[in-house]
Amino acid sequence: MSDAGQLAALAALIGDPTRSRMLASLMSGQALTATELAAESGVSASTASTHLARLTAGGVLEVRAQGRHRYFRLADADIAAALEALIGAASAAPRRSFGPADPALRAARVCYDHLAGEAGVRLHDALRAHGLLQADGGALTDAGEAWCRRRGLDLDALQSSRRPLCRPCLDWSERRDHLAGALGAALLQDLLRRGHARRIPGSRALRLDRTGLRFVESLA
C-alpha cells in the first residue's frame, strides 16, 4: 500500500466518532476493557467489540488477555504522539484559545505515559536550562546522564529500550515542547512512585504536590 493509501486507511480508522472517543479515553496510558470502552463511547458492547476489532487489526490498539478479561491500550508511543498532535490541531481550529478548558488538564496531565501540560513544559525547560538536555531536546548531555543516575533512574535500561530516550513532543495546550520518550515516561513514573504526582480519577489530569511542582520548575 502506498503512503497515501496508508494515511487514508489510518484516517478512516480514527475518524469515526465512536472510535475517536475510545482512543481519547486511552490517552491516559491505562488499559481498559471492552465494557469500559463501550461505556466511555456510549455504545453497546457488541458495537464496541466491532470497533475494537478494527482498531486492533489496523495496528492502532493492542490487546492483552488476563483471566476472563481482555484489556485494550494504544499500540505504542508513536500512535499516542500522532493522536496528541491531531487533538491539538482539532482543538485549535474552532477556538481562540488552545487546549482544554479544564484548568486541571491545562496544568498537568498524562500524555500516554509522560507528563504534559504546563508542568510538562516547565520540566522540559528546566532540563534544558540546567544543561541536562541538548538544545534541541533530543538527547541527554553528559551532565544529564549523571543527573539521571543521581535521581535513581536506571539509565542503562532506558537507553536499551527500543524507543528513543528523549523526544520532544509538542504540547497541544501550551504549543511548546514537553519531554516524551523513555526518559519522559520514567520521570513521570518517578513522580508517581514518590507520591509527588497523582492521577485524578476519570481524567487524564494529574495533581502535583508542592514538592512535585518545585521539581518541575527547578529539578530540586
Rank of each mutant, 00 (worst) to 15 (best):
A119I: 13
T141C: 09
D209A: 01
H196M: 08
L208V: 08
L23D: 03
Q134P: 02
H114F: 15
A65K: 10
A77D: 13
P100S: 08
P17W: 10
P103I: 14
V63C: 13
L187D: 14
L140F: 07
G67C: 00
L183A: 01
P94A: 03
R162W: 13
G58L: 05
L183K: 02
R167G: 04
D76K: 03
D3C: 14
P17H: 03
A39V: 12
Q6K: 08
A197Q: 04
R106K: 13
A34N: 04
L10F: 12
T56P: 11
L127V: 10
R150P: 03
S49P: 03
R95K: 13
D136N: 09
I200L: 15
W147R: 02
S41R: 07
Q189I: 09
R194E: 02
R122H: 15
A11T: 09
A81N: 02
C111R: 04
R162Q: 14
A89Y: 02
A197F: 01
D113G: 15
G42L: 13
D190F: 12
L132R: 08
L123C: 05
E84N: 14
A116I: 06
D190V: 09
A48R: 09
P201L: 14
W172Y: 14
A48C: 03
L132Q: 10
A139N: 05
W172V: 08
D16F: 05
A9L: 02
D125L: 14
L127P: 11
H114N: 10
L170D: 01
P201N: 13
R150Q: 13
D78W: 03
A75E: 04
A45N: 13
A11H: 06
A4T: 11
L191Q: 00
R128V: 14
G15P: 02
D136H: 07
P17M: 07
W147F: 04
Q66G: 00
L213C: 07
L158R: 00
P94N: 02
